[in-house]
Design a protein around this nucleic acid. Structure first.
Lengths: 112, 112
DNA sequence: TTTGCATACCTAAAATTCTTAGGTATATTT
DNA sequence: AAATATACCTAAGAATTTTAGGTATGCAAA
């Protein structure tokens, strides 16, 4: 499991990308989805996830829709237009980050 | 310039890797080196760098050697045995992180 | 049937890491 | 002479995450 400090700062990027692809998701679903597709290597803790979702909503990147499933609430999140733009930006930024890190971390003596 | 929150948590990884490759470096040199090899995309601020170097020393991952250049001090950092192991671990962790992020961020519908 | 686990939301204190914004001083370039 | 570069440092605050809870429903196994 990847419970190290490297995942810091990636949470918004992940959420926006998943919402862009799945149209709408609820919090718990996001945690399970990430766990599943990362093959258990990345675990989103709820203590980090929910405050981040609330922040994204407050900033107008996502909107919510509450649905009752039996007696239990589900709060679906979906991207706003602003959120869709933010997703594109975040993905590009992440790619830049990876490129920069590659330059820094690649072995100096590349004989290959 | 990559001044976003993605770089959080990568500082130790970067420092350890550079010291593993260059044998010894001083703080200011590290900032310039990173700026140079990342083509200006990554800037290490001194406010983050120096406390991290001090922490690495406190934790026994690096040792220091002070040299006077004229009237000015230079504090060279080099890896301890523990620091060398940590470097290997950090690089592996980073690779895992990249792999997990790739699984999460890659487009769902890959027709390529 | 009741115990436990999964589902589903949430918050708050503390820890961690970084940014911002300084301070000090020497060396070099314009 | 003034500005920029070199070279070290710290501290307050911001931002994000971890840790450690709380509440409640649904379901399956003992």
């Amino acid at each position: 499991m990847l419970s190290n400090e490297l995942t810091k700062g990636t949470l918004q990027t992940i959420i926006l990308k998943l919402l862009a692809e799945e149209q709408k998701m609820y919090g718990y679903e996001i945690t399970q989805h990430v766990k599943s597709i990362s093959e258990g290597k990345m675990i989103l803790t709820e203590g980090a996830l929910y405050p981040t979702l609330h922040k994204l909503e407050k900033n107008g990147l996502v909107r919510t829709q509450q649905v009752m499933i039996g007696k239990r609430m589900r709060k679906y999140y979906s991207l706003t237009a602003k959120g869709k733009k933010a997703n594109v930006n975040k993905l590009a930024e992440f790619q830049e980050f990876i490129n920069a890190m590659h330059l820094i971390l690649k072995p100096k003596t590349t004989t290959s």
